[in-house]
């Protein structure tokens, strides 16, 4: 109780309660994440269960009964008769899963490499930071595409669809570790010269482990901010790759895949197949982005 009321009274909480943008963004994010998590219970249909699909339901308009089956779908159906609403919920699961996991991967990789670079110094540091510099020269999406292509080449042909999601996660994660590494390396360099590290070294303790305990709390806020903004970027990157056909496989469509499918029906007038996934993607990316912006301002007033 005590901790809770202290948290409520903190600057951070105050700043949140006084930012309508942050409140709405968090609301949208929570709503979308929850509905994605609960998709199997919330969605009226399971779009990936072939048994539940009826081709007769194809191209049903939103909120209008299907001509043959008289079924009503809130957001209409696609060419296969899949309920668009359910497909969005399931697609969002893929998008969010890839986004979160890729950022987590980038975070662990970046923090580790940043720590090593800052602590070890010398050529280890030079190598890591040079690689980071070179990678920064190229847009992340290009790096991700390339890694995706290479990984696809390494995977045996019959496992490609199965592995595609993981390949996607690795590709996006690898394209995004640099920011984390830079922040953590900077903090490590500062910490390295403090007395307790020198002391630990003198008495023969492993300073690395001790440092880790001191550095991580220090870099928590910037890492959290980078992670949030990275999440928005990762979600967009995933959608872009899947839209380009080099991401999520057709058997596990993400929001990007749905938009890719929907683009084919723009000219024939089936606008709902593309519109609703696109709006969902926008809402997701925008609210995570705004949340990240707010977080950056709230955690680091100096940067404003």
């Amino acid at each position: 109780m005590e901790a809770l009321s202290r948290a409520w009274r903190s600057d951070f909480s105050w700043s949140f309660r006084h930012s309508p943008v942050a409140i709405i963004s968090l609301g949208v994010v929570l709503l979308l994440v929850l509905s994605a998590l609960l998709a199997p219970w919330v969605a009226p249909h399971n779009p990936f269960d072939p048994a539940s699909l009826n081709l007769m339901n194809g191209f049903t308009r939103p909120m209008e009964p299907n001509a043959f089956t008289q079924e009503i779908f809130w957001l209409g159906t696609d060419d296969q008769g899949r309920d668009v609403f359910s497909t969005i919920l399931y697609g969002m699961r893929i998008s969010l899963f890839v986004g979160f996991t890729a950022v987590l991967f980038a975070l662990i990789l970046g923090v580790t490499l940043g720590l090593i670079a800052g602590y070890a110094g010398g050529w280890t540091e030079t190598t890591i930071m040079r690689v980071a510099d070179v990678q920064l020269t190229f847009p992340a999406i290009l790096v991700a595409m390339l890694i995706f292509g290479i990984a696809k080449g390494i995977t045996p042909v019959d496992m490609r669809d199965e592995m595609a999601i993981w390949v996607l996660i690795i590709a996006i994660g690898l394209s995004d570790w640099v920011q984390f590494a830079r922040v953590v390396r900077g903090a490590t360099l500062v910490e390295k010269n403090k007395e307790y590290v020198q002391a630990a070294r003198l008495i023969g303790r492993k300073p690395g482990a001790i440092m880790l305990r001191h550095i991580l709390p220090n870099v928590m806020s910037p890492v959290l901010v980078i992670a949030t903004i990275s999440l928005a970027l990762a979600i967009i990157a995933e959608a872009t790759l899947s839209f380009l056909g080099v991401g999520a496989p057709p058997t596990q469509p993400s929001l990007g895949t749905l938009i890719r499918i929907g683009q084919g029906y723009l000219f024939s007038g089936e606008w709902w197949i593309i519109l609703f996934p696109a709006i969902t993607l926008l809402a997701l990316a925008l609210s995570v982005n705004l949340l990240g912006d707010w977080l950056r301002d709230a955690l680091n007033p100096k940067l404003r």
Partner: peptide, 10 residues
């Protein structure tokens, strides 16, 4: 800035 390129194209 927050719109993905492919959505702008579409």
């Amino acid at each position: 800035v927050s719109l993905p390129t492919f959505l702008i194209g579409i």
